[in-house]
Design a protein around this nucleic acid. Structure first.
Length: 485
RNA sequence: GGCGGCGUACCCAAGUGGUUAAGGGAGCGGACUGCAAAUCCGUUAUGCGGCGGUUCGAAUCCGCCCGCCGCCUCCA
């Protein structure tokens, strides 16, 4: 598998430090407000990566933090007359609800900054002792000059950053580029005791401390939005590698932004759309399908029309799954993907127990191979997505041409298994929903059609529609789906 | 100013040196249907921002130009 890493700006073969095991860390959110779809994209990008790695057979340890102490949280707390921890806890709960709503799996470990202050202090102490950091009036700064590699990740020239026009000049710092590891606290602010007096951690140190705590001093992959490249990840590398003398992270992965009307979506521009806004109107898989259509490193422009299109496209899969659910149980779909699924006739054979000449076998094998090759190439989800649509069309055509029902079901099951490697189809279409009344109307409509009383039949269809269900007539009988149209 | 990205059909979006330029949405024609829906088949870019160049061959490499965006400050 090949992944683009920001540090070298090239796509490199991804080789975990420990064979078969991937340790990854992703910068989570600062919990002071609701999450917007930009956060959703980042969460989904790394959710896809994490799921795909597991599908490939890696044992994955996925850590994603909460930044629960920060100026913005303190300001918000003050504005609302609440304690900072009340604000952060509230938005952590909102975050969890949002992630569940968009089908993002819970990471293995979700550390909070405030619960790792001792680890941060120990790390800062190491840096002070080794001369990489200095203390001024209860603040501790990392001395950038001491770390020659500073700027490499983001491709910045140290001189260009010097006395940067937009960097606040603090007379007490030895160099304007130096960044805070520890900040002394003002009265009334949250504070922890430290060797340098009462204070709180700087932003960057928390990720280094928590990543090392759970993943070790060197680990495989670190991710986040592209805006974190500088200064956040640059600083993480500096402080971590200065402290340990070891390479901190092998692969740096950064996702592109969600833009709004061609502009970056951000709170300061006032053009944010929250995850709740989206989740209310569109299924999680529609959102995911939309993101999957654009490579993760490219910017993507939000438009409600795009979401509607993808909701529409999603129905192609849902119809297939719904029809299989008519003859198979939901557990039928719970099959794992083999580690090498694109080149695995045994899996295809076992999965379908079909003859060599069964075309569905070929459809699945070809699609799985195309899918895996795409994903192995720096997560080319647009191509992987296309493989899914291609397989869906072949299965539809196969069925239409009178193919074997079991083979068809097995093909759909394989489609679902592939999709699940991307986090799609984790929730199967609603099935056990129709009320007795709807069922009665459907039955009555069937009778009316038998009598060729189409006027009555159409009235009943309208009634059923009014109750939130769409009834379609297929050769196999009526298909009932919960749909908006 | 420094660094980086983008411009492909009606819309979105892959592809980054070599078969007939993925896929989705939308439109159109046809099949199927009591009518629909779903689905299938066909169809919509001799051309990939513009102009030059390299090459047997370029959307893909080089040069110039035009337009758009991001980072350099908290930020997914």
């Amino acid at each position: 598998m090949r992944i683009y890493t920001t540090r070298s700006r090239t796509t490199e073969e991804f080789v975990p430090l420990s064979p078969g095991e991937v340790r990854m860390y992703v910068c989570g959110v600062t919990v002071y407000d609701l999450c917007h779809i930009g956060h959703a994209r980042s969460a989904i990008v790394f959710d896809v990566l994490q799921r795909y790695l597991r599908a490939k057979g890696y044992r994955v340890t996925f850590v994603k933090n909460f930044t629960d102490i920060d100026d913005k949280i303190i300001n918000r707390a003050e504005a609302e007359g609440q304690a900072p921890h009340e604000i952060s806890e509230r938005y952590i709960a909102e975050f969890r609800a949002d992630m569940a709503a968009i089908g993002v799996a819970v990471p293995d470990i979700e550390p909070k900054a405030t619960e790792h202050i001792p680890e941060m202090i120990r790390l800062i102490e190491r840096l002070v002792v080794d001369g990489f950091a200095y203390v001024v009036d209860g603040d501790v700064y990392f001395e950038v000059r001491r770390f020659p590699e500073y700027g490499r990740l983001s491709g910045k020239n140290l001189d260009d950053l010097l006395a940067g026009a937009r960097v606040d000049v603090d007379e007490r710092k030895r160099d304007p580029r130096d960044f805070a590891l520890w900040k002394s606290s003002k009265p009334g602010e949250p504070a922890w005791p430290s060797p340098w007096g009462s204070g709180r951690p700087g932003w960057h140190i928390e990720c280094s401390a928590m990543a090392m705590r759970y993943l070790g001093e060197s680990f495989d992959l670190h991710g986040g939005g592209e805006d974190l490249v500088f200064p956040h990840h640059e600083c993480e590398i500096a402080q971590s590698e200065a402290a340990t003398g070891k390479a901190f992270v092998r692969t740096w992965v950064h996702n592109g932004f969600v833009n709004f009307a061609s502009e970056k979506m951000s709170k300061s521009l006032g053009n944010v759309l929250t995850i709740k806004d989206i989740a209310r109107k569109y299924p999680a898989d529609a959102l995911r399908l939309w993101f999957l259509n654009t490579h993760y490193r490219h910017p993507i422009e939000y438009s409600e029309e795009r979401l509607a299109e993808n909701a529409r496209a999603l129905e192609r899969f849902q119809v297939l799954i719904t029809d299989v659910l008519g003859i198979e149980s939901r557990a039928f779909f719970d099959v794992p993907l083999p580690a090498k699924f694109g080149d695995s006739p045994p899996w295809v054979t076992a999965l379908m127990a079909l003859g060599n000449r069964e075309p569905v076998r070929t459809y699945v094998a070809v699609a799985a191979r195309r899918f895996e090759e795409a994903m192995d190439d720096d997560l080319s989800t647009p191509e992987a997505r296309a493989a899914l649509f291609g397989l869906a069309r072949e299965l539809d055509a196969y069925r239409r041409d009178g193919g074997d029902a079991r083979a068809f079901a097995s093909g759909v099951r394989a489609l679902v298994a592939l999709g699940r490697a991307l986090g799609l189809f984790t929730e199967l279409p609603e099935q056990a929903g129709p009320s007795p009344e709807v069922e009665r109307l459907v039955a009555e409509r069937g009778e009316a059609r038998k009598r060729r009383d189409f006027k009555r039949s159409d009235e009943l269809r309208a009634q059923i529609q009014g109750l939130g269900w769409t009834v379609e007539d297929t050769p196999a009988g009526p298909r009932l789906t919960r749909r908006t149209r």
